[in-house]
């Protein structure tokens, strides 16, 4: 308990030091004029005149990320269940997933942009990143039940569906929860990159605009906002993961 508290204090201290360094480098001009002090970035985010802009952009990015996250996670879990019942599909599905993952998202984005209806590039890219991570986690999770438990279900005359529902799925939940936590940043990365290539609004659009129009503080503000959203969602997913681990192990 003391160690956990000490770690938390150290973590806060480290974050504070990082912010101070950011501020100091920006204020002294050590990082050049493209490195604004943290206080100016926060001032822009705190400016009520900008809230409408940031709010709409963040809302759009979040909507794409959530859409991709939900569909990607469902697809990953569904594919894992399919290969669980039809093990002969597993090697092929593994390679397909690994292949999709090996292609850089930025390389896929232009292809999807011309292939898909307008506005669906961001959620699609988010979904692909999520689906891979969740598939890998779910596929290994569904294999995680112990030999003793599998023997028990066999002797009890269990049908495959009952075994999936009452043994393999609950035994795999800790692994699936870990995959869902790791997939949170992937969903946001996919959404932002999708927005770079073509979206009416979003934090990705703000980042590109800030970059191209040399609005340096705006660029940093959008990046900081993405980071904060990602971190918050990651922490929530981490709390859910810990609860699942405590319950199902």
């Amino acid at each position: 308990m003391r160690l956990a508290r000490d770690l938390r204090i150290l973590g806060l201290l480290g974050t504070l030091l990082l912010c101070l360094a950011w501020e100091a480098i920006g204020a002294t001009g050590l990082g050049g004029f493209t490195w604004p002090p943290l206080s100016r970035v926060i001032a822009m985010l705190a400016d009520p005149d900008r809230w409408d802009l940031f709010g709409r952009a963040a809302g759009s990015t979040l909507a794409s990320a959530v859409e991709g996250y939900v569909f990607g996670a469902l697809a990953g879990i569904a594919l894992a269940m399919l290969t669980h019942f039809l093990p002969r599909l597993a090697p092929g599905a593994d390679r397909l997933a690994a292949g999709m993952h090996a292609i850089p998202t930025v390389a896929l984005a232009p292809v999807f942009l011309i292939l898909l209806p307008a506005g669906s590039t961001a959620p699609t890219l988010a979904g692909i990143g999520v689906a891979f991570l969740v598939y890998v986690a779910a596929a290994s999770g569904l294999r995680a039940s112990s030999a003793a438990h599998r023997d028990l279900f066999q002797v009890l005359g269990s049908r495959p569906s009952a075994r999936l529902l009452r043994l393999d799925l609950p035994a795999g939940l800790p692994s699936i929860a870990t995959g869902l936590r790791l997939a949170v940043p992937a969903a946001l990365i996919g959404a932002v990159i999708g927005e770079w290539f073509g979206a009416p609004r979003g934090l990705g659009v703000l980042i590109v605009n800030g970059m191209q129009n040399f609005q340096i503080v705006l660029l940093w503000s959008a990046v900081l906002l993405v980071a904060l959203i990602s971190l918050t969602a990651y922490l929530i997913a981490g709390a859910i993961e810990r609860a699942v681990h405590a319950r199902f192990r």
Binding site: S146, A148, H149, D151, L152, V155, L156, G157, R166, L167, P170, R247, F248, R249
Partner: peptide, 13 residues
């Protein structure tokens, strides 16, 4: 069948 093995094989959840 009713079975009880050395590993109690109770479901932890």
């Amino acid at each position: 069948f009713g079975v009880a093995f050395q590993d109690h094989a109770l479901l932890p959840w």
